[in-house]
Amino acid sequence: MKIISKLMALSLALTLGFVGCKPKDADIKSNVETALKTNPEAAAISVSVTDAVATLSGEVKEASSKSSAETAAAGAKGVKSVVNNLMTAAPVVQAPVEIAPADALTAGVRDATKDFPTVNATVDPAGVVTLTGTIAKDKRIALMQAISSLKPKRIENKLTTN
């Protein structure tokens, strides 16, 4: 009987002691957040901690931010392991600038300026559209939109508004 009660007391003490030493998840979370402060994309990273396992989530731009965040989180006090659910954003692919061939551009400019009899337009072989003449102020945008959609190299707008 004595032994049993002693054992119970010991196990209780051990349990209490263990719980007492173990950092709370909330504290670990703040440790991880502090460790991530140096990460250039810290603002995009969210942290959750369950039973000392830190989970990182969010979308970062650079793969290096993803790996350095994991290293930093793993080194934070109280972290048992890290689940790295960070996503890296797909890189934005910039399409090359497309310039329409001069003949297609010439036909397009003719169509676009048909309803603007006071506008004279020329197209050079490189694709530069030069606009001369006059245009009503409220029609400028409509004409510029139409010309811009034709993929010119440049628009030299020398129109005077009236």
Partner: peptide, 26 residues
């Protein structure tokens, strides 16, 4: 939305005379 963007262009480059932008918003 397209009109808003063209209005911004108009603010930055009044009368579109700089010849340094081709704005193609479909």
């Amino acid at each position: 939305i397209k009109d808003q963007l063209w209005a911004k262009y108009d603010q930055i480059d009044p009368n579109f005379t700089s010849s340094d932008l081709v704005l193609n918003i479909k």
